[in-house]
Structures are given as structure tokens and as C-alpha cells.
Amino acid sequence: MVIMHSLVLLIATALLGAVGIQITDLRVPSVVRNNSGSAALLDCDYTLKPEELAAHSYAGLVVKWYFNSSPSPVYQWIPGQKPQDLGILKGKLDLKHRSSDHGATMYRALYIRNPTTELSGEYKCLVSTFDDEDFMTKKMVVFAPEKKLYVTWWKHDSGVVNITCIAQGVYPEPKMALYLGSKNKDSLKDVVVEVTKEHRCYDISATKVLDGTDVQATTMFVCELRIPEANYMVTRSIVYYPGISHPLSESGADDLHCRRIIVMMILLALVSLSPAVW
């Protein structure tokens, strides 16, 4: 039994000693906001063989980061040398950032200053020595919320009512839906959604044409814009008034505000014209 136990320990020790470099954790933010002024930290944590750590020279150790399917690295660090920002990350990294004070791991991470949408994609960390290598990949989405978002309506002379929502400058590709009512929203059917891409951003519109006889009462319409990859959602609403041909403004809240202002202006005009009455 003693011999067997010693043999098991010997085999286990040999196997553990045979384990080379190993990435233990790849920390990449899943979602960051475009041009927000905040940095994104992508960290690649790994371990080396005890004898490699004890040598203090870390001969053959190289840390590389790759972006999407490019065969060329966007970052490289060899202990004893300065880290290099390359390709799409050139000039966008804080090369002085240290992940640790250890000579074998201090410049392993990417510290991206103010990431923008072109940096949205797959990041692969590859760590290698003369004897072994390991890699791990994760995705980071850099999303851009809408630059503009509005919903409006107008009534044609034929009585047909057109409900349209438009969003501009969104990334990545968004989704859009129109709903009837603000509470217990009912999704409108047969909505025509169009998406166009320009300069890495998307514009999207959703249009629904209704027969005027189907909306004879004051009705609220809600537009919902979503960016699924970023878990982002925002809404705009507008109130339809059957007695007029187009809204006074683009949103229900603004519409009500404008109506209140008009009423106040009328009252002030009446006061100034007929002071004796008051």
C-alpha cells in the first residue's frame, strides 16, 4: 500500500509539473458605451510553471492580443521590453497600465482609453513560451445609443393615419416596434421596418398605416427602440388626436406641454385686451 501511495503521488506530481502555461481567467467587459470617456480594461490572467517563475528571466514568454479574425496582433508584450500597441489599437491604449508588479504578468492587459464602436468585436489573448501556449476569446460590444429618436403621425385627406418612428446613429444593429397604449401595450401588426447602415452606424424607421375609422378616439402610440446585443432599450410616445391632421410636437409629453402654453398665451391675451372684465 505504501508503495502504491508513493507511486500515485509520483504520477500526480509528474502530471502537475507537466502543465505548462495556462490562462485562468479572461476578463472582458461584455458591453461598453461608445465615446463615453471611460476606459475599458481587458485582462488576461495566466499561470506559468514553477520553474519558469523561479528563473526570473521568463525566457520565451510572449503575450499577444488579437482582434476579430485578423492574423496580426493588436498588442504584444515580451517581458523586458516595452509593450506595443498595433493595428486598430495603435494610439488607443494606456501602455503604462500595470496589471501586477510581477515581471511575468505586469503588462498582460489591454487598457483601452475611451473605446469607440470600431473596437466592438472578438478579443483573443494568446500567451506562449518556448514549450507551450494557451489562448482564450471573449466578445466586447461597444454600443452607440441613438443620436435622434422621434415618433410622429399625420392624417391624410383620405382619412388614413400614418404612424412613423425614426432613430438615427445607432450601433450595433437595432430593432424597433410600435405599440398601442402606454399600459398593457399591444404590439401593432404589419409594421414596416427599414434599416440602413452608414459610417458604421444604423438608421432605423418603423411605419404603420391605420384606417382612420380604427382610431376614432384620442390614442397614445409608443415606439420602442432596442439594441439586443447591448441589452439597451428606450421608448418614445405620442398622442393621436382625431380632430387634427398632425401633432403639434413629436412626443406626447411635449404635445401636452405645447397645448398648455397655447392656452396660457390665449388667457394672457384676453387679460391684456379686456382688463375691465377681470
Rank of each mutant, 00 (worst) to 15 (best):
K155V: 09
V170M: 11
A167G: 02
T196E: 10
V161N: 02
D157V: 08
T164S: 05
N162W: 02
K197Q: 15
G159K: 10
K183T: 15
D186Q: 06
K189D: 09
N162C: 08
V192R: 09
V161T: 11
P172E: 03
S158H: 14
D190T: 13
T164Q: 10
N184H: 09
S158R: 10
G169V: 07
K197R: 12
A167F: 14
P174M: 14
K183Q: 10
W153V: 05
D190L: 12
G169M: 01
D190A: 10
D157E: 12
Q168D: 15
G169P: 01
V195E: 02
N184F: 11
V195A: 07
T196R: 02
K155Y: 02
V191A: 07
S158P: 04
D157Q: 12
W154N: 12
A167V: 04
Q168L: 09
K189Y: 00
M176L: 14
N184E: 11
W153I: 07
K183Y: 10
K175N: 11
D157W: 02
S187K: 02
P172K: 03
L188Y: 06
I166W: 14
V193F: 00
W153N: 13
W154H: 13
K185E: 13
K155G: 13
M176K: 09
E173F: 08
V195W: 01
E194L: 05
I166A: 06
E173G: 04
Y179I: 12
S187P: 08
K189M: 08
S182F: 15
L178H: 06
L178T: 02
S187N: 04
V192H: 07
N162K: 15
E198K: 13
I163W: 10
P174I: 03
D157G: 15
W153M: 06
